[in-house]
Amino acid sequence: PDQALYDHGTVVSLTALPDSGYHFTDWGGDLSGSTNPENLTMDSDKSVTANFSIDTYTITATAGVGGTITPSGAVSVDSGADQAFTIAADSGYHILAVLVDGVSQGTIGSYTFTNVVANHTIEASFEEDLAAVIASVADASGFPGQTAIPVTISVSDIGTREIYGIDLTLTYDDSLIQATGVNLGSLTSGWGLFSNTATSGQVTIALYGTTALPAGGGNLAEVSFDVLATAGAGSVGALVLTQADFEEVPADGVSNGSFTISSAPTYTITATAGVGGTITPSGAVTVLETADQAFTIAADT
């Protein structure tokens, strides 16, 4: 009202003016309803109350599979207030992204809206943890002159990764052994294979498929080696994966192997001659595996 006293029958217009952050709700006392402005007829002394409530806004909080956001759902926040949210990944998952009003905030674990004066959204997404990809070379051994000894290159469980191409480079001590060929492993059966063993001390392998590598670990390839005849028994040469790329991304780790030169196994040829002649050599004759042994038989006069 614009004055304290009014003549009987005067119609007074009342307007409720909320402060910033509040809104008018309804009239009390000698006025009712929520019409604003509202007219009041002065036919007696009047007492009128304008009721106000603080403005509220909604923050919609959602979380994808693999984690939670707290609080969640439609969260009501008073005008000018702050509202904090906590983002947590379930076991076996990690936070992939947190979006506030559609804008990425990174992989944060909490976020606080300050001085809220509008509706907002916050959305958390999660991704399953993947085990580390480890490429491994198996140990092997062979004796001088032995051929076609297999050395297996394998990989740990790749989880849900989609792998269509693998590049491997294996280096070895060419003073002891020589790579002669490469075959597909059980895990890459049906894939394409390109290999090069011509470079001394190195094998390059490219594996590729039109279907993704099956989940789970297994053998990727098998490299065949011959042991040089000049290799000394007891010598040990490293088998080192200098490259192990999966979809052009290096493996998380590599476990290298070794090749040990063993002594060739021996066998005994027992040579005997009856009365009237000789066999040379005679008795228990020790012969290395794969070696030749000649005997001469002669009759006495």
Rank of each mutant, 00 (worst) to 15 (best):
293 Q>A: 07
221 A>Y: 02
34 S>D: 15
112 T>Q: 14
119 N>L: 11
212 A>V: 10
298 A>G: 04
260 T>N: 04
157 D>N: 12
51 N>W: 00
195 S>Q: 11
149 I>Q: 02
118 A>S: 15
267 Y>V: 06
212 A>P: 03
47 S>K: 05
203 V>A: 04
86 T>V: 15
163 I>C: 04
91 S>I: 08
118 A>R: 11
283 G>W: 09
291 A>L: 09
5 L>M: 08
245 D>F: 04
95 I>W: 13
59 I>S: 03
191 W>E: 09
236 V>P: 08
272 T>P: 02
191 W>M: 12
127 E>V: 13
99 L>M: 15
91 S>H: 06
254 V>W: 05
187 L>Q: 12
200 S>I: 10
110 S>H: 02
239 L>A: 06
176 L>G: 06
83 Q>D: 02
48 V>F: 05
131 A>E: 15
154 S>L: 01
152 T>S: 11
27 W>N: 02
49 T>I: 14
78 D>P: 08
27 W>L: 07
133 V>Y: 05
92 G>I: 07
29 G>H: 07
62 T>L: 15
46 K>Y: 02
64 G>Y: 12
171 T>Y: 11
134 I>C: 02
154 S>K: 01
20 S>K: 07
38 E>M: 05
7 D>K: 05
156 S>N: 00
174 D>W: 07
55 D>H: 07
225 F>G: 09
139 D>H: 03
135 A>Q: 03
127 E>D: 11
232 G>N: 13
250 P>G: 04
172 Y>T: 04
178 Q>L: 13
134 I>R: 02
168 L>W: 04
273 A>Q: 03
287 V>N: 10
180 T>K: 10
244 A>L: 08
11 V>D: 14
229 A>D: 14
114 T>D: 08
37 P>V: 01
23 H>I: 00
101 D>K: 04
32 S>Y: 11
92 G>N: 10
67 G>V: 04
241 L>G: 09
214 P>M: 06
98 V>I: 14
265 P>W: 03
225 F>C: 09
54 I>C: 09
173 D>N: 14
58 T>I: 14
1 P>V: 06
216 G>R: 04
125 S>R: 10
99 L>K: 09
43 D>R: 00
255 S>I: 12
120 H>L: 13
181 G>M: 10
164 Y>S: 10
77 V>A: 13
191 W>H: 11
186 S>N: 13
88 A>V: 13
16 A>N: 03
113 F>K: 04
129 D>Q: 10
279 I>S: 12
178 Q>P: 05
37 P>G: 02
115 N>D: 15
257 G>Y: 01
181 G>H: 07
115 N>W: 08
195 S>A: 15
237 G>D: 06
144 P>G: 00
207 L>Y: 02
193 L>M: 12
69 I>D: 11
121 T>Q: 09
296 T>D: 14
297 I>W: 08
253 G>K: 01
10 T>E: 15
46 K>D: 03
268 T>F: 00
111 Y>T: 05
219 N>K: 03
254 V>G: 05
209 G>C: 13
132 A>N: 11
122 I>L: 13
120 H>V: 10
131 A>V: 11
109 G>S: 15
301 T>E: 14
199 T>H: 07
7 D>E: 11
194 F>H: 10
62 T>D: 13
140 A>Y: 04
234 G>V: 05
190 G>H: 08
294 A>T: 10
185 G>V: 11
184 L>D: 02
14 L>A: 09
71 P>R: 01
223 V>F: 07
180 T>M: 12
248 E>R: 01
239 L>R: 06
